[in-house]
Amino acid sequence: MATHVSSAACLSVPCQRKIQRVRAVASEDFAAVKTNGNEKVKLGASDLKVTRLGIGAWSWGDTSYWNNFEWDDRKMKAAKAAFDASIDNGITFFDTAEVYGSRISFGAISSETLLGRFIKERKEKNPEVEVVIATKFAALPWRFGRQSVLTALKDSLCRLGLSSVDLYQLHWPGVWGNEGYIDGLGDAVEEGLVKAVGVSNYSERRLRDAFERLNKRGIPLASNQVNYSLIYRAPEQNGVKAACDELGITLIAYSPIAQGALTGKYTPENPPTGPRGRIYTPEFLTRLQPLLNRIKEIGDNYSKTATQVVLNWLIAQENVVPIPGAKNAEQAKEFAGALGWRLTGDEVNELRSLASEISPVIGFPIEYL
C-alpha cells in the first residue's frame, strides 16, 4: 500500500513486550487447501499459504489519510471488531506496515501495535487460532544497507509482539541501496525471522532484478503488492501482472475497491472526504456511474453486493490476492462474501471493457520510482 512520509523520526522504539508465537500457515502441498471453508493459495514459490483474500490494516491508527484526521477509542474498537469478524469469517491474512499509523506519517498509534494487541487478545480466547501476518520495511532515504532491513524488522516484530512474521516486504523502491535491501530480505529468511519475502510498488524491471538476486540464494520472491482494481489496471498495462505470472510471484492487490469508489457508497453529490476527495471527484464519479450500475446488476443476479463483485473480479484474474481495508466488522463480513463463488468469463470481460471507457484514476507516484 502507499504511504505518506514526512518526518525523519526514527521508528525504532524500546520494547519489552512479551513475544507471542502465531502458528504459521505453511504446507509442502502445492495445491490449494481448505481451512474453515475458505480456499488458501500459496504465495509465489514460497511455502506460505494465505486465504484468497486478506485484510489491509492501512487505516488502523492512521490520521493522515483515513479516519477524517482523528483517532479515538470508538475507531479502535471498530478496528478490533473488524479483526475478529475477519477471523470468524475465515479470513486470516492481515497486511500492515511499520509506517501505518506511526508518527512518521502523522498517525495516532502504530497499526503494527494495534494488530499485535488484537492477536494477543484473540489468542487468549483461542490459543489455536491461525493468523498470517505481513508487514513492510520503509525504504527511507537515511536507511542504508542490508542491516537496516534486519533492524527495522526486529522493531516491527517487537511492536507486533511476535518472534517471526510470515511475509516481510519492501514497501517501495529506495532512492538508493535497493540491492542491499534485497540482501536484507534474504538475510531475514536465513535467520528465521520471516517465512517469505516480497516487495511492494515495484515496476517490472525492479521486480525482475529482485527476483534474480534472491533466486541466486535459493530464496523465492513470494509477492509484489501493487495498486490494482477494476478502475486502476496499471499492473496489466505496465507488464507487472505478466511478469508476476511468468516468474511465479503472487500479485497482492491493495486498494482493490478503489478506496471505496467501487462500492457504490459515493456519488457525485456525495464524494469521499479528505485526501480521497481529490482523487475521486464529482466529475470522476459521474463518469463512473454506468460501470457502477452494471456492477450492481451483476451483483443482484448473484445476491452479492457491488463490493463483493469487484473483489471477485480481481480474484478471477488468478494469481491475485486482494487486501481491502476493513474499518469495522460489517466491512469485514462483506469482504468474506466475495469468496466461494466466481464471475463468469463473459462477466469478467464485460466489466473490464466498461471500465476501459473511463479515464483511469491517478495512482501513487511511488509506483514509478
Rank of each mutant, 00 (worst) to 15 (best):
M1E: 07
Y302A: 13
A253I: 12
Q169I: 11
R17K: 15
T273I: 15
S105F: 03
G177E: 12
A9T: 12
L351S: 03
V5H: 08
T63Y: 05
V99I: 15
S255C: 12
F335T: 02
V41H: 01
S6M: 15
L214N: 05
N312F: 03
K34H: 14
F94P: 15
S7A: 14
A45W: 07
G248H: 07
F211Y: 15
Y368Q: 14
I279M: 03
L354M: 13
P324E: 10
I315H: 04
S353T: 15
F137K: 05
F93M: 14
P173W: 03
D73S: 08
T344P: 00
Q317P: 10
I182E: 06
N38A: 14
A78H: 03
Y168P: 09
K40S: 15
S223A: 15
W142E: 12
P220L: 02
G101N: 04
A108V: 11
G239E: 08
R342W: 02
F137E: 07
E70R: 03
G340I: 11
V165S: 02
L369H: 13
T286D: 07
E269V: 12
K80H: 05
D209Q: 13
I257Y: 05
P235M: 00
L114N: 08
N319T: 10
Y181N: 07
E236P: 09
K77N: 10
A152F: 03
L221T: 10
L162C: 00
T305M: 12
K304N: 12
A332F: 02
T307M: 09
G218I: 10
L115P: 08
D209H: 07
P235F: 01
R233N: 09
H4A: 08
L339R: 03
T344G: 07
D95R: 01
F69K: 11
K34A: 14
G198A: 02
T250P: 11
E350L: 04
C158P: 04
E204R: 09
L114F: 06
S86L: 13
G107S: 04
K18S: 08
V194Q: 01
G61D: 00
V129C: 08
A2R: 01
I19M: 11
S110V: 04
G186H: 05
V13D: 11
V129L: 09
A31Y: 06
K195E: 08
S105K: 04
P235H: 02
D183T: 09
D47Q: 13
R143V: 07
I366Y: 02
G198L: 02
C158T: 02
Y202K: 03
G325F: 01
